[in-house]
Simulated scan of single mutants.
Amino acid sequence: MSSRALWRDVRLRAAWARQDWAAILREYRRAAGLSQRDLEPLVGMPQPHISAIESGRRQVTTAEVQARITEGLRVPPELTSIPLRPDLDEWAPPTELRERIAHGDATGRTDLRTAVWIGEVLAQHRRSEDEGGGQILWPVVRSQLDAVTRLIPGTTGPAADRLLLLAAEHAHWLSWVAWQHDRKGAALAWIDMAHGWAVDGGHTDMASWVHRIRSYYSLAHGDPTRALRTAEAARLTISLSPAAASAAAHQAAIAAAALSERDRARRLAEEALELALRVPEETDRPGWLYWLSPARAMLEFADASYACRDWQAAVDGIRAALPELGDYPRDHAYYLARMEDATRRA
């Protein structure tokens, strides 16, 4: 595996975000399958020094040693800027980012290899957040977003549109993590930016998806009327893929159930399931909907049954689909709790 490919590793990137030099060396060796002696020629230090750093007996404090490690391990450019940006600790979008031009306005061609690489890394971050939360990767994703948006003013046409979608995906990720950490205002600010970039780039699936996320936020905040209104806006976005349309219909079903419109909710849940089952393969869905497998679609249908107080249907649906969910610990816990509660009520 190339040095660049190693830096897709989430644990390695998280160590870099913490600037934990001992962990950086350990995680790099783990990802690369190297011994401490194998690391010697890369970082220009003898094995006893590497061992002392990894064990905490020696601290990396000088710029010279930090540079030697950074260059030797070929840390990607979007990560090397992190320590130089104190505003990455802020939750809300900074003024500088808000003022950055968010559309292509120059001629010429931009090398999109950096953007392709960052897109691949973001896919790993999504899965990592599903497994255990994303706060540790916050500064990494913020720095990636900066790298993407700095490319936008120098592009036009389809290349600019691709960058706008990638920027929107990053802003959506930041919004979701901010919401999970009770930073509601920041979450809304990021999701608004994601929507603007999605619309500017002509990406209807992403524009619908961020409406769906806003609906989720409204419902979680106790406002089902606004949640249903926003979910319907997500559904009515033109030219949606089946997966994006399914996600919007499911959210509308949950919001309708919260308003006691159960017949409407059931119809929407059936629509969501039928749409999701049209695209059983991950490659046929937008990248951020990688998780919408047939098993997940069945679980969402069962969750809508729960919301409609169809207790036995919820129990049966969760019991049938949960073994096929895969490695999503938080979601397993969520659906198990739903099934246990529905069993008591049935």
Rank of each mutant, 00 (worst) to 15 (best):
D105G: 14
D105K: 07
G108D: 10
R109D: 15
R109K: 14
L112K: 04
T114R: 09
A115I: 02
A115D: 07
A115S: 13
A115F: 03
A115H: 03
V116D: 14
W117V: 02
W117Q: 07
G119N: 10
G119H: 04
E120W: 07
E120V: 12
V121K: 00
V121D: 01
L122S: 03
L122A: 02
L122F: 02
L122K: 00
A123H: 08
A123W: 04
Q124E: 15
Q124R: 13
H125I: 09
H125A: 15
R126C: 06
R126L: 12
R127W: 05
R127G: 09
S128M: 09
D130Y: 02
D130W: 01
E131S: 14
G132V: 12
G132H: 11
Q135G: 02
Q135T: 14
I136A: 12
I136P: 00
L137W: 03
W138K: 07
W138F: 13
W138P: 02
V141H: 04
S143D: 06
S143C: 09
V148T: 11
T149M: 15
R150K: 11
I152T: 02
G154E: 10
T155N: 08
T156S: 15
T156G: 11
T156I: 10
P158M: 06
P158S: 12
A159W: 03
A159P: 07
D161L: 01
R162V: 11
R162F: 12
L164R: 05
L165V: 11
L165K: 05
L166H: 05
L166V: 06
A167W: 00
A167Y: 00
A168H: 03
A168I: 05
A168P: 02
E169W: 03
E169C: 08
H170R: 07
H172I: 04
